[in-house]
């Protein structure tokens, strides 16, 4: 139950999501579905059975009309940096924390489908494949060759588009560079976001946009009190939104799912 070994690495990837910019359009979700070869079932209205690595929660301040406000909290995997809840519980080492990048990934061909990780994650970032992956006739053509679709009976989660890191590194290597430039490796969701609410990058690079953003006064993380140390940060100037980021004693709970 020790912490992850700190490895001398110049990389630690993270994400900042500006909730004041987010309009909840869901382009990030669709970009993720497309990038990561998700299949779609005919009915996706049962959200407890709908795999969305990048899930956008719609929340409200709970005030009655006409003082109501809604906001959106996009929730990728937090890639918890401290004693990653899903990594330590996996009995077969199918979940991996990469000490070089900080990325938490899932090995689908190793997973036995016990779902202990699903239970251990407080962010509901882990999903289970309840059904066989099926694409309608002809639709399999849009499968991304860099990403394996998941078989029935295994758990899966957001990988920070890990395969894109590999591609970016290959490209840098060909160009004779050892280090990646800021923005060279971004996730599909960050790439798609129309309001540019999502910033992705190397938190250990002091010059990166993300390293500056996480020091913003409105920055917070989800459920910080648990000590999971998520690598996904949120920004908001609205106090009611920031309050929804963690449980707090003595606060009248008003806001919630819209």
């Amino acid at each position: 139950m020790s912490e992850h070994q700190e490895v001398a690495s110049k990389e630690k990837y993270g994400m900042v999501i500006d909730l004041d910019k987010c309009t909840g359009c869901g382009a990030c979700t669709v970009a993720c579905l497309s990038e990561n070869n998700h299949y779609v079932r005919e009915d996706e209205s049962d959200k407890l059975h709908s795999v969305t690595w990048m899930k956008v929660y719609k929340v409200t301040n709970g005030e009655p009309f006409p003082n109501t406000k809604v906001a959106f909290i996009p929730r990728p995997c937090m890639h918890c940096d401290h004693h990653t809840p899903c990594v330590s519980v996996c009995p077969v080492m199918a979940t991996d924390y990469n000490p070089l990048t900080g990325i938490v990934s899932q090995i689908y061909t190793r997973c036995i489908g016990c779902r202990y990780c699903v239970g251990a994650c407080p962010y509901h970032a882990r999903y289970f494949n309840w059904w066989d992956p099926v694409w309608p006739e002809g639709m399999h053509k849009l499968l991304n060759p860099d990403m394996s679709p998941r078989m029935r009976g295994v758990a899966e989660k957001c990988s920070f588009c890990n395969h894109r890191l590999q591609k970016a590194k290959d490209k840098a290597y060909v160009e004779g560079r050892k280090e990646l430039k800021d923005g060279e490796y971004v996730t599909a969701c960050a790439e798609a976001c129309p309001t540019r609410a999502i910033t992705f990058g190397n938190m250990k690079d002091p010059e990166s946009a993300i390293a500056k953003l996480i020091k913003s006064p409105g920055a917070f993380r989800l459920l910080e009190k648990l000590g999971t140390q998520p690598k996904v940060y949120y920004l908001s100037n609205e106090s009611w939104i920031r309050e929804l980021g963690d449980n707090a004693l003595g606060r009248k709970k008003r806001g919630g799912l819209a």
Binding site: D46, L48, H49, V51, G113, R115, Y116, V118, G119, H124, R126, Y127, F128, W130, W131, D132, R152, G153
Partner: peptide, 12 residues
Amino acid sequence: GLNQTNMNDYFG
């Protein structure tokens, strides 16, 4: 498969 159960991504 386990779609025969009422378990889901909240109730693993």
